[in-house]
Amino acid sequence: MFDNFPLWPVRASTTAGSVDALYIFLVALSLFMSVGIFTMICIFALRYRRRKGLEAEQIEGSTLLELTWSAIPLVIFLFIFAWGAVIYFKERTAPRGATQIYVVAKQWMWKLQHEEGQREINELHVPVGRDVEMIMTSQDVIHSFYVPAFRIKQDVLPGRYTTLWFRPTRSGTYQLFCAEYCGT
């Protein structure tokens, strides 16, 4: 039954692990923050619900509190920024010596050519454990090369080259999506 109800995508590249790690951190942080806020709201709503003999107590605000709850989120945000940036930096910088594959996208087809000249259409076979760099362009509209199992995505534009790289860590068959809307 759970074949039809996955909750986590397959992890099949070196990038996938580091993306998942930050994602899990963000999920945990979000749970902590939202549960915290919702609990406070529920406690206040119940404890100070309108009833006889209970008067609201006026409080203007507190600059100290305001500064605290501005500064702490800011520090956490900057930490997430830095973490995300490190992953992105690695994602965007292909290692030296990566095998190059040339990709031409068109409505609605991926045409891929290996260094040795061998061609494939809509499918790509690459060995596990080797760095692969895609050098991509489009013949018509914007497309986007997306393999969820590798956690990588890059738009493919007409009139210029974009690149992306990955190193598969697990053999298998994975979905390749075009993630940019390209018409019918």
Binding site: V19, S34, W83, A179
Partner: peptide, 24 residues
């Protein structure tokens, strides 16, 4: 409640490494 969840998931999308996977 909903805005808080929308805002927190915005942090995911602003994180470059995660955005690459989840954008679009």
């Amino acid at each position: 409640g909903l805005f808080t969840m929308g805002g927190l998931t915005g942090l995911f999308l602003a994180a470059l490494g995660v955005d690459v996977h989840v954008t679009d």
